[in-house]
């Protein structure tokens, strides 16, 4: 476990002749992925575009993306980890139990054929989505697919990328990584960063009721998080910065309308391959940018006296 063999989408466009999507539905969720980066474009080393590429889709249901695939492998729900582990064994030439493979919904012959295709390609890529990373096994599934891609490099060039979504989630991870060394779930309350998903991650903090105020930037947890987390946001002061009124702003104490980034505010967005893209605003907005609002909040906080708990409040009366 550990490490990710990766590439930019430009490299994939120019080189990838074997493309696998696992637990993702780009036709619906990333509608420009096929046409700009993976299936359709002609690449430097793939002059015939789609004809030079093979696409395999692995999913538990036949989604719209299946129509674009050369091979669709419908697997049983919750069997991703088992299938990846069997595939890793076959890639290494190790024996696998036919009955155990059959439990994944795939035959051993199909598995051997898949391993052969993966080993024989010139440049392979696995894109994995929430169907892999957010189902039973979660981070262990992600670790298994990253390991599979790493191990395939003993035979050919292979890379893997998560199908990141929702605007600039990759940018958030990247900036947190430069600043603290960790991508998310970072606690700065001691003045230095501490990382512990499950303890300092947003949903866990809200569900446990550990926070007494929340600042929400570019997100709508009121429409996406588990109900106990939403109820805690409603119980405590919540401040939302968003161009629109969202579910979260309705339960918040303060909503500050900001300019839409990329439309009326400049900034930098990170693509799913972690390549930064500058955004030039096309329109003017009467509203401040998120950055301007946050800087003003920092300024106001800095004017306040440092927080120091009174000694008597730290003592228990018996």
């Amino acid at each position: 476990m550990g490490g990710k063999v990766s590439a930019t989408l430009g490299e994939i466009k120019n080189r990838a002749d074997f493309i696998m999507y696992w637990g993702g539905n780009p036709a619906e969720c990333h509608p420009r992925h096929f046409t700009r980066y993976t299936l359709i474009p002609k690449g430097k080393f793939l002059p015939n575009g789609r004809k030079d590429r093979t696409m395999v889709l692995v999913d538990i249901r036949e989604t719209a993306s299946a129509r674009a695939a050369d091979q669709f492998l419908q697997i049983r729900p919750g069997k991703d980890f088992e299938l990846i582990t069997a595939l890793r064994a076959v890639v290494k030439g190790l024996p696998v139990d036919d009955a155990l493979v059959a439990q994944t919904g795939i035959t051993t012959e199909t598995l051997h054929d898949l391993a052969r295709q993966m080993k024989q390609c010139r440049f392979g890529v696995i894109f994995f989505g929430m169907g892999l990373s957010m189902t039973r096994g979660k981070h262990m599934n992600s670790a298994a697919i990253l390991t599979l891609a790493t191990e395939l490099n003993a035979f050919t060039k292979f890379v893997t990328l998560p199908m990141r979504g929702h605007g600039n989630v990759t940018g958030s991870d990247m900036v947190m990584r430069w600043n603290t060394g960790y991508p998310f779930g970072v606690n700065l309350s001691r003045g230095y960063p501490r990382f512990n998903p499950g303890e300092y991650s947003t949903i866990d903090l809200l569900v446990r009721g550990d926070t007494d105020a929340t600042l929400v930037l570019g997100a709508d947890p009121g429409a996406t998080m588990p109900q106990p987390a939403i109820e805690h946001l409603a119980r405590t002061p919540t401040i939302v910065l968003d161009p629109k009124v969202t579910h979260t702003s309705k339960l918040a104490r303060v909503h500050i309308t900001t300019a839409a980034t990329g439309v009326s505010a400049p900034g930098t967005v990170y693509r799913m391959d972690e390549v930064p893209m500058p955004l030039r605003p096309a329109l003017k907005s009467p509203y401040p940018t998120d950055e301007e609002v946050v800087l003003k909040i920092i300024e106001a906080v800095n004017r306040k006296a440092p927080f120091a708990p009174r000694a008597e409040s730290m003592m228990r009366t018996v």
Partner: peptide, 10 residues
């Protein structure tokens, strides 16, 4: 969240 930061979403 089983220590991952995200609950099972599917």
């Amino acid at each position: 969240t089983d220590g991952t930061g995200m609950p099972q979403s599917k």
